[in-house]
Amino acid sequence: MKIVSLSALVTLLGVSLASLPAIGDPGKANESGSLHASQPQRIIAAGGVVTEIVYALRRADVLVGVDSTSTYPASALKEKANVGYVRALSSEGLLSLNPTSVIAIESAGPPDILKAVEDAGVQVSHLPDVATPAGISAKIKEVAKLVGEPVKGAALAAETDKQFAALSALRSKIEKPRRALFILSFMNGRAMVGGRDTSADGILTLAGLQNAASTLNGWKPISDEALFDAAPDIIIAMGHGPQDVTVNSILAVPAFAATPAAKSKSIFIFDGGYLLGFGPRTSSAARDLLLAAYPKLAGQDKRSDLQ
């Protein structure tokens, strides 16, 4: 292995060497979506939605590692190695799992870590993350192709599209859109709410609701007076983890108790990952939210007859 000794020497001089990966085992690089891989696939999912899609395709067997945002299904982080937060991955950590490929959501990184992994002969696929129905089915198809299940993927994507179409039909029946406030968490009685340009805003739109906090940009704590102005008809809160937000804890805050939502008892607690994941479960999450917000539409929902 004279090449190696030479390259080690060159690299010691501080020259970034791009040629070394060339001596990496070529057999390791799997063709994307190949159904007949020469060796079993070993995939790392970087991004909670990637993990969710792989599990939805029932191909968890190909996963060797998932990132720490892979909270659904809950078994993922128990069964698979945790490669850390999706934006703070470690190159050697990823390589230590001997992956054949890494499926990285758009925001995964840091970029130079993913580049180093790619240089080591591991196929790194970057997955665009668009928080729309079309973006979701595109994600499903792409992940399915990468795990070698294009047919199952197309079916799942088609099913998702169908659900979104049904959702859209349901949405068109809304006569008067209601105003909803999305609470992420409570800190000392102050609520952190989803404003414009948040995943919360996206799911509210899908559920045919108006974001009552649309004057805010991003996730922001809302002041009592702004809350009065927002006058939400509905309050949606994320309940998960040890700091559970409950209906009673919201009503205990005077500013919240005075909202129209509190008066009509329209406060709903949802699982955060379910509502904000923008993955295969999003259509049903949006539908659940819509039916909770507009109970009268429940009877007109065709899908509810099927269940």
């Binding site: 292995m1 190696v4 390259s7 080690a8 690299t11 060497l17 070394l20 990966p21 001596i23 990496g24 085992d25 190159s91 050697e92 390589l95 180093a116 240089d119 080591a120 002969g121």
Partner: peptide, 11 residues
Amino acid sequence: FARDALVITQI
């Protein structure tokens, strides 16, 4: 070997 060499020299 190639992988280990890469991990040592490049990482």
